[in-house]
Amino acid sequence: MQYLIMAMETAEEFAEREDPERGAEYWAGWGAYLAALSESGVMTGTGGLHPPATSTTVRLRDGQRVVHDGPFADTKEQLGGYFVIDVPDLDAALEWAARCPAAARGAVEVRPLMTPEYYASTGAG
């Protein structure tokens, strides 16, 4: 099964990315995690995201575009990056989520991707 691992980072972590003192440690953690993921062969996709301040949210209301600066929800942790992994079950996915550097200070959300079997059971099939 494929799972999306969402690394939800704190403002502090986002700030560390460009911090001259703590940046090295921050990036070393992610480098090791990425290396472990690609080494194990479970990763099928990944991406790192710029901080939430760079986000822009769009809604269409009454035919009008409503554009606003920032993420759609103002939460303490914000999406900082994602990984798609292919593993046998949720326990295996949770193992990888627990290893994610964001788990220590922020949070890591694990979501299953819809399967062909699921699509087939719905109107999409």
């Binding site: 099964m1 799972y3 046998p88 079950d89 949720l90 326990d91 295996a92 996915a93 299953p112 699921y118």
Partner: peptide
């Protein structure tokens, strides 16, 4: 079923 919680 959907989250793939293992039967183990």
């Amino acid at each position: 079923k959907q989250a793939g919680i293992p039967f183990a």
